[in-house]
Amino acid sequence: MATKKNININLKIWRQKNAKEKGKMETYKLDNVSTDSSFLEMLDQLNEQLVNNQQEPVAFDHDCREGICGMCSLYINGRAHGPDTGTTTCQLHMRKFKDGETIFIEPWRSKAFPVVKDLVVDRSSFDRIQQAGGFVSVNTSGNTIDANATPINKQDADKAFEAAACIGCGACVATCKNGSAMLFVGAKVSQYALLPQGQVEATQRVLNMVRQMDEEGFGNCTNTGACEVECPKGISLENIARMNREYLKASMK
């Protein structure tokens, strides 16, 4: 199974001390990288080398390392989460790279995702969009209704679930040439718009979330479809169309 092969690579990584200072691309050489290691393990290996050489390690976001938390980011060789589709960076393995290859690693680039340090960006703009309407208000003070008491069409339930698979990683924004967050907001609007529980606040939800999205400085969608291709969870453009419909409906009220 295992290829048991080690490769030597060159890395071009964005280094930036903090949010205020200007950053630049730095080149590093890393030898003996196992092709069985994940991309993040490769960065761990680089950081060990840097620490051993009394250099500042590269800061990057990561958490669950199993493709579910949405924490890891990284724009690798010009693609969000690297060359694979349907995966996060932590699910990317070094067997995808060749011996002697130069790999570009950059942070998500968006006005609404300012760089905190090196490859770490501040994605709290997504949190603020969620807080603007990405929830249902349910009274939990002892009289909660059983969720299964409300029958839901299977197709709608599936579509809502697919939309809810969004892990909020921000790859859609990172890959979009316009830095638009519409796939994220579209998914968050859709997961409620498709369910009866979401109807009560539907009008205000879409208006408030879109307003917050615009205020955060995300760009405007031009339907290039890059987000759908790069989304690690395969969120469909249908969700943007649904958000557009919901917004029109809400605007008419």
């Binding site: 724009y75 010009g78 060359p83 570009f104 006005k111 291709v229």
Partner: peptide, 21 residues
């Protein structure tokens, strides 16, 4: 113009032909 402003720092390497027409 707005979309240009949404990404003040450009990518050093961007393989946009991989996912868009």
């Amino acid at each position: 113009i707005q979309n240009k402003k949404a990404r003040p720092v450009a990518y050093a390497m961007n393989n946009s032909s991989a996912n868009t027409s």
